[in-house]
Nucleic acid binder design. Structure first.
Length: 211
DNA sequence: CGTTCGATGCACT
DNA sequence: GTGCATCGAACGT
């Protein structure tokens, strides 16, 4: 398969969110390829969205949000988790889609290795490797499983070794609900996920309105 | 089941 | 100095 074209991202963010479900996120690295099907995403749209990083205006950190669509916006959250977004909308319209969960489909062994020493908080739990469905459950977990770090910030999703491609997978059971982990902007139902999917992050796995 | 809480680094005020 | 688009261990029920 081929990486999705820039046109795919240069659209209203909620449409990109909808169409991203079931697509395949791939990261090729020197140690191998890891990939998964997107089952959970969230939209962050513009300076008027209080939960969007662009709400604080254009800074060095948020610069990628204002750039061309189809590029990655990666940042470090809580001092320990990298979160990956796909920039959407035309240049200068700051918006992006946060990738929150994947169903692992390729490079499972690599994912297990990368997740194996993931637990910095409790070294004693290191021997417990997460089971497959939780390898890419949650935005911090999936970046670790795919080896995505700040090095991928600004990467071109249309031309680099980090990309999103079409897939034959169809998830008809998609649902929408409030975004997770934020204290403002919770009134917007801009989280889209595959209802009941085992790789969707735990909270609200079943809730939300069907569409 | 449920909730609480500590780890941890950096952009931004 | 403050506040995170998180995670999982350690509780309580």
């Amino acid at each position: 398969m081929k990486a999705l074209p820039r046109d795919f991202y240069a659209r209203p963010t909620l449409l990109v969110v909808r169409d991203l479900i079931g697509k395949r996120l791939v990261h090729d690295t020197p140690v191998g390829r890891a990939a998964g099907l997107i089952v959970e995403v969230e939209a962050y749209i513009g300076e008027a969205d209080p939960a969007c990083h662009a709400a604080a205006g254009r800074t060095r950190r948020t610069a990628p949000l204002y750039g061309d669509p189809g590029f990655a916006y990666v940042y470090l959250n809580y001092g320990m988790h990298y979160l990956v977004n796909a920039v959407t909308e035309p240049r200068d319209a700051p918006a992006a889609v946060l990738i929150r969960a994947l169903e692992p489909v390729e490079g499972l062994e690599l994912m297990r290795t990368r997740r194996g020493h993931a637990n910095r908080l409790s070294p004693s739990a290191n021997d417990l490797s997460p089971d497959d469905r939780s390898l890419c459950r949650g935005p911090g977990n999936l970046t670790r499983a795919l080896g995505i770090t700040l090095a991928q910030n600004g990467a071109d999703l249309c031309r680099s070794r980090l990309f999103i491609e079409d897939s034959d997978e169809v998830f008809p059971e998609t649902a929408w609900g409030p975004r997770i982990g934020i204290s403002v902007g919770t009134e917007s139902p801009w989280r889209c996920y595959v209802a009941g999917h085992r790789s969707v992050s735990a909270r609200n796995r079943e809730q939300g309105s069907r569409k």
